[in-house]
Design a protein around this nucleic acid. Structure first.
Lengths: 253, 253
DNA sequence: GGTGAAATGTGATAATCGTAACAAAGCCTG
DNA sequence: CAGGCTTTGTTACGATTATCACATTTCACC
């Protein structure tokens, strides 16, 4: 038997699932408590709720990289990803078929695409698909399969079959680790086969990442660094010289 | 050459793509204009921006059934869909494979699923996949293919191939038109083949809709009404008696 | 049933928001 | 270059929000 407070929090979450946004007064009326009590409920559940000037939303609806936080808004990784995406963006051409790997990095690249640029986009991650779907001139192809929450992406035989029937001009890939000797690696084993297959069939392969990944080795290897036509970080094109001297360290994730 | 205002609106949109939420002061500082100017920019672009107590978000991030609007929050269709979903929900069982059709109706059904109920969910719409992905005990399978903005869903041969290899216990389907003589119809031709195939392979088929759809005929037929094990509306199970007398009319969409 | 802690409600006050009105600056056209 | 219109900035003011402190109610345990 849950407490009244727990019941209220559940009811508020359900209501937000329906309404998306509720004003404080609406929520207080719906839940039958005072404004102050709803304020306390929201403040005590920051993982679920966010509070914007008298309005309540699901925290997940405004998360970029974690809960809305001014400090995190200035996160270095996000800035680095944007910068790397800006460098990579010049390789997006109209009327081509472009592959977008999973992860948050390429969302920044997608945001740079003008709404009127016509391309065919291929992807397999939910967040990437959502962002691509908002651009009216993009023909979007989703590789289906089983969802993996760890990467927010789908994987499976159907996706591989779809890929085998696609022509891809440009592939933008991501990696969680980049090492001069051990190549490009990622965190999830289900991602690697897709990345490998895409690199086989694409005309051009570009890696978009940030300097924090250099020197890291993750469990799933997918390509040697010279398999990429270019590697972009926040500093621009990554030269092989920049990789010299970088050995894998015990970097904490 | 776009105007300064147009450049600012684009920059604000880009910034929100990154930050998800910006306070009015942050935006004014970022854009180098006064608070009042940002207020005007946001107010003049309601399709892009929403404004919540001094905070700016992308309008799409808070849309439930269209832009946030207090009148629309009380929308009868949404209430009807919730009620219909509540009736249908009793047919969701743990450890089964459940198909969720496209459209907004079934989002209400998904919201009713407890976070700890383990099912395998099959879907082909972006909004449905997004909502399902938030439930940790759901194994989610996405049918891939080409994106259709009109229905927010994917269609194609790969999805059909995936379906041919799946066992589905319960299928929840949606329709845009329900007529005693003309059966269940939907608005988009790309949806019909998927619905038909799912109904062929599922053990049980349920239609979840609302009374506003009764008597309507849409362009793409997919099933006779007696092909469903039950039809749920906001009033409960729809009896064949309720359908008598309903002939297709020139209902405006 | 009493007690203590937690939860909730209320009112005051400071801070912030939102709007309106008007002034100043910028831009475009003749 | 001048005039007119648009855009932007500033200020005032009423409305609303957010926080704090304290009072009241509810709940759980003995």
């Amino acid at each position: 038997m849950t407490s009244r407070k727990e019941q209220r929090v559940a009811a508020l979450s359900d209501a937000l699932g329906v309404h998306r946004v509720l004003h404080l007064r609406e929520a207080a009326s719906l839940l039958g408590v005072s404004l102050m009590t709803v304020r306390r409920d929201v403040a005590e559940n920051p993982a679920q709720f966010a509070y914007l000037g008298g309005h309540i939303v699901h925290a997940a609806n405004i998360e970029g990289e974690g809960p809305y936080d001014l400090a995190k808004a200035a996160d270095r990784h996000a800035a680095a990803k944007r910068a790397a995406s800006a460098h990579a963006f010049k390789h997006v051409h109209a009327d081509e078929t472009v592959f977008f790997d999973c992860g948050t990095t390429l969302v920044h690249l997608i945001d740079l695409i003008p709404d009127n640029l016509p391309i065919t986009a291929v992807c397999y991650a939910l967040n990437v698909a959502d962002r691509l779907s908002r651009k009216p001139n993009i023909s979007l192809v989703m590789l289906g399969g089983l969802y993996h929450a760890s990467s927010g992406s789908f994987a499976g035989e159907s996706g591989r079959e779809t890929l085998s029937r696609l022509g891809i001009n440009t592939a933008f890939l991501t990696a969680a680790g980049i090492d001069a000797r051990r190549g490009a690696t990622c965190a999830n084993f289900h991602e690697a086969p897709i990345k490998m297959q895409v690199m086989d069939i694409a005309q051009r392969n570009f890696l978009v990442t940030d300097n924090s990944k250099i020197g890291r080795v993750r469990p799933a290897y997918f390509a040697a660094l010279d398999a990429f036509d270019a590697i972009f970080t926040e500093d621009g094109v990554l030269g092989t010289g920049a990789l010299s001297g970088f050995e894998a360290t015990d970097a904490a994730e």
